[in-house]
Amino acid sequence: MNRTEIMAQIVGILEDVAEISPDEVTEDSVLMDDLDLSSMEILTIVADLEETFGIRIPEKELRSFVTISDLIDYLSTRVG
């Protein structure tokens, strides 16, 4: 799966979990600041991503997800 496809999945989950319009999301978007996501929403998004991609993301990785790009980088290494 390439970056564009992973991005599309993330955008869909953001829209579903936090009602964020796809137009608002770029790779540089900062999860908590730019997208105004709460920690609970981030965990929900991660849980959704795990289910979507059929993987388990270790808890120690969670704090490294600052931007959308961080998420894509991580997922690319696991499912790319």
Binding site: V17, L43, T44, V46, A47, D48, E50, E51, E59, L62
Partner: peptide, 15 residues
């Protein structure tokens, strides 16, 4: 959370 039970379970364990 307005989410299926399995998502709530995973969020709970991450927390």
């Amino acid at each position: 959370l307005k989410a299926p039970l399995r998502i709530k379970q995973r969020v709970f364990s991450m927390g």
